[in-house]
Write a protein that binds this DNA or RNA. Structure first.
Length: 855
RNA sequence: GGGCGCUUAGCUCAGUUGGUCAGAGCAUCUCCCUUACAAGGAGAGGGUCGGGGGUUCGAGUCCCUCAGCGCCCACCA
């Protein structure tokens, strides 16, 4: 306990209490807690490559209020933090910062010193380093960012247990990720397959369905003629990608399309390249698109993949992984003219090749009319800059119901039994799961990730047997197959006939972050801890990553534990700028959190965040922060004032009707706030508490302060003081989850221990079993009277301090009784000298105020 | 094309099972330097609750329909 300051202030309270909380271990998880008394949060690990922005402040505050609520309710709160530093953005920064590139063929060097630390010269050629060295450099660089993140989250007042910190690339995460993958593999839930895959030619990596986005791009329909091989005419097709003509393997039209029915089974020759391809029928061909007949290429889009697979067509791949036309012409191109045409496109970029082919088509007369410009959606990797291509390669997949009805049903059922906040978010989940069209592709051709923990036998002829992967024992994890050697092999057997070769890929970043409950809970490393926290109580996250993070986490938990990973999912909305657009850096409308903390205080920023309904997009509003700051300042001042009346007589009871009614109202607020928090509706809890608090300050305290000073005797004073202190204690605790700093500050002036470990208030402790309606009627009558007196003074343009000669009250007998019960307080607060009482019919409550003549 | 959400004072939004629900904050205007707080306080004005129809004694609150906005998914020759 510390003394009440003369001039209460918010200055410096954040750094002071952050330090105190750390020292006292207020947020530490008790590892002896049993699961039924734990509240476990599967905290989203923010991506470290950027900087924290208001969106983070917003959503993490929501979670923190709930965590603080449950801590006060007596739960042992498991509230870890993680950093998502595993992935592409970090790789790019490391390359640019240290002047290195990752080359898995380079041997590991212990204690490697990178050529630069920051700003290599422009002409510097990146120095190749091994994958383990590269990962070490990634870790070094992200460590600095992570310190900044931690400081910001502490400043925000998150009640995280920082001893539970992890990062998605650290050894613990790699171990959990590889262990889970190996178990998926052992159970047949992970498999490897050679298949066409969406490919980003810049990042040079495969991309999963969940990472796609459509972007509108300009294109053009080109009408191209295919000659029938029986010389009976030609078929016109429309295509936006004539560049793929050398990859054409068939034409396709709808089976019911009368225009093309006679042609099914016949063949045509591709223009320029002279390859004979069949004309086929398939339901997916749309008669109203273009000319109604399309060319199938390997591969132009995902529909091509379906046609290719279902019609058993050959592969004529022409686009390489670097986004250029490959060197070798498809075997089907044999004619002199065809090979000549090929020679003019090979090695060129897709755009260059397209231009060249259009030119040749124009020259040969196979292009009919001019290309017609259109704008159409094209698939992109969400982080990518160029349209995705489709290449065939061997990749690892984890089953997710995209190809298996039973699994899909099981995962849909998981989504059904999850409690969603708000509830309608469940549709995003089922919508996504029902729309899956393939399993989850988890191989990525990157370096700063968790390696796929398998090797493959190299056969005597030098070929690799991908169907018999060699796996490490779990006790060895994490492993890097490009450095570590499988059991029973000598390092010299690497890539040698009869030896082994390591899988060069890493796992998709979601393949690791889908295991955050397991990682944070130390699954496999400390199963005792894990059993105390799993399944978690809540997964808080943004609604934009339901299809990725939420779904993939459900998949992994379903396979590994046969359960949901959490009981609740709490989805937060977006931060919008005041123009109702999503805030983004490019528009220059981003404000840094630290600046706002400095200007308004952390509590005020939290107040703004906590005012947003769960899952609702919310406008960024400094006005709300100003209001939050006012609230915090008000709490300082009213606490100082109330404590100034002196300590409560422990035997005193709030016997005065107004005092009891105030506490009865407060008990209702406690009930509502508690219920709201139990349903993750921190905003409702705040709103109710705040509304009470302002009424308490503006009306109740004003009414009773004269009495509390002792102006009407000791008994009446003791009643007021007891009620004031009881209410103060309750309000401070109700506000503690949202305003942790100022509540702790004011609590410390008169209470022992942290408010954040104080018991959450109950309705019983303020007013057990009181008559709510009667209390509200009493309050309405008394506050209505004082309001009328204030209004009269305002209208007369005199000070509120001005004396009132007399007040005539006309009301029903019951109302008159209520006003009488509070009359001494009203007379004090309104400076009223005399009163007269007049009975009237219902609805007649009138307060006639006669002001005293001015001096 | 399918799914979901939103539409209440100038602005941002509350209105939990239909009955003082027509509200809050900001903004605007008026007044008050009152001894917790002038980076305060006391008051005022302002909305036919998107349009239309229906159920009901009674509907922002339930049903149907239309319109606008937003998001997710699908399509993408």
């Amino acid at each position: 306990m510390s003394a009440v300051p003369d001039k209460p202030s918010l200055e410096g309270i954040e750094s002071r209490w952050i330090g105190e909380w750390d020292a006292a271990g207020i947020h530490a998880f008790d590892r002896t807690a049993t699961r039924d008394n734990v509240f476990a949060v599967d905290t989203p690990p923010p991506t470290v490559s950027g900087s924290l922005h208001m969106g983070h402040v917003f959503s993490y505050t929501h979670t923190d209020t709930v965590a603080r609520f449950w801590r006060m309710r007596g739960r042992d709160v498991f509230y870890p933090m993680g950093w998502d530093d595993n992935g592409l953005p970090t790789e790019r920064r490391v390359q640019n910062y240290f002047g290195v590139s990752c080359d898995p063929s380079v041997p590991y060097v212990a204690g490697l010193e990178p050529p630069f630390r920051g700003d290599p010269p422009k002409d510097h050629k990146p120095v190749p380093v091994s994958r383990p060295n590269f990962i070490e450099l990634c870790e070094e660089l992200t460590a600095e960012d992570e310190k900044v993140f931690e400081d910001l989250f502490r400043r925000l007042g998150l009640s995280v247990d920082w001893s539970l910190l992890y990062s998605t690339i650290d050894a613990r995460s790699r171990r959990a990720s590889q262990r889970a993958f190996l178990r998926n593999l052992a159970r047949g839930e992970a498999y490897t397959r050679e298949a066409p895959t969406l490919w980003d030619v810049d990042f040079q990596t495969a991309v999963a369905q969940a990472e796609l986005e459509d972007r509108e791009r300009p294109g053009a329909y080109h009408t191209v003629a295919f000659a029938r091989t029986d010389e009976s005419g030609e078929i016109l097709i429309d295509t936006t990608r004539p560049v793929l003509i050398p990859a054409c393997v068939a034409l396709v039209a709808h089976p019911d399309d009368e225009r093309y029915k006679p042609l099914f089974g016949t063949t045509v020759r591709t223009p320029l390249f002279g390859v004979e391809v069949p004309v086929l029928a398939h339901e997916l061909a749309q008669p109203d698109k273009g000319t109604g007949i399309a060319m199938i290429c390997t591969f132009g889009d995902l529909t091509d993949v379906i046609w290719w697979r279902e019609l058993n067509l050959p592969v004529r791949a022409i686009i390489g992984r670097d986004g250029r036309i490959v060197a070798d012409a498809p075997e089907a191109i044999v004619s002199t003219e065809g090979l000549a045409a090929w020679a003019s496109v090979t090695g060129r970029s897709i755009n260059q090749a397209q231009t060249a082919i259009v030119g040749m088509l124009r020259e040969s007369g196979d292009l009919r009319g001019e290309p017609r410009a259109i704008v159409h959606p094209v698939k992109f990797y969400e982080k990518g800059d160029r349209p995705l291509e489709i290449v065939t390669s061997r990749k690892w997949y984890i089953r997710n119901g995209g190809r298996d009805t039973d699994l899909r049903e099981a995962l849909l059922a998981r989504g059904e039994s999850l409690v969603w906040h708000p509830d309608h978010m469940r549709h995003r989940y089922s919508n996504w799961v029902e729309g899956l069209n393939g399993d989850w592709l988890v191989s990525r051709q990157r370096w700063f990730g968790v390696p796929v923990p398998v090797w493959y036998p190299v056969l005597a002829d030098g070929s690799v047997d991908h169907d018999a992967p060699i796996v490490p024992d779990e006790s060895r994890l994490p492993v890097d197959p490009l450095v570590d050697v499988p059991e029973g092999f000598d390092p010299s057997a690497r890539d040698a006939p009869g030896g082994f070769t390591g899988d060069p890929d890493v796992l998709d970043t979601w393949a690791t972050s889908s295991l955050t409950p397991q990682i944070a809970g130390m699954w496999g490393d400390d199963d005792d801890l894990f059993s105390r926290v799993y399944p978690y109580d809540v997964r808080p996250q943004g609604h934009d990553i339901i299809r990725t993070w939420l779904f993939s986490t459900v998949v992994r938990a379903h396979f590994e534990h046969g359960s949901l990973p959490w009981r609740n999912a709490a989805l937060s909305g977006w931060i919008l700028d005041p123009d109702r657009k999503k805030m983004s850096k490019s528009k220059g409308n981003v404000v840094t959190p630290i600046d706002l903390f400095d200007r308004y205080g952390s509590d005020a920023v939290r107040y703004w965040a906590a005012g947003a309904r769960p899952g609702i997009d919310t406008a960024f509003s400094e006005d709300q922060m100003k209001v939050g700051r006012k609230l915090a300042v008000k709490l300082l001042n009213v606490t100082k004032f109330v404590l100034g009346f002196g300590e409560a007589d422990p035997t005193a009871r709030p016997v005065e009707p107004l005092d009891a009614a105030m506490l009865t109202r407060l008990s209702g607020v406690v009930d509502e706030a508690t219920r709201a928090f139990e349903e993750y509706d921190y905003a409702r809890a705040l709103e109710r508490t705040e509304a009470f608090f302002w009424w308490f300050c503006d009306d109740y305290v004003e009414l009773v302060k004269g009495r509390a000073y002792g102006g009407h005797g000791d008994v009446a004073a003791a009643s007021a003081r007891a009620a004031l202190l009881r209410a103060l204690s309750t309000v401070q605790r109700l506000l503690a989850p949202m305003l942790p700093f100022v509540t702790e500050e004011t609590w410390s002036w008169w209470q022992e221990g942290s408010v954040h470990r104080a018991p959450w208030p109950t309705a019983d402790e303020t007013a057990a079993g009181a008559d709510t309606d009667a209390a509200e009627e009493l309050i309405a009558a008394i506050c209505g009277t004082i309001a009328a007196i204030r209004r009269a003074k305002t209208e007369a343009k005199v000070s509120q301090r001005a004396r009132v000669e007399t007040v005539a009250i006309t009301a029903t007998p019951a109302e008159l009784d209520a006003v009488r019960a509070g009359w001494t307080d009203i007379a004090d607060a309104g400076s009223v000298d005399a009163v007269s009482w007049h009975e009237g019919p219902a609805g007649s409550l009138a307060v006639d105020v006669t002001l005293a003549p001015a001096d």
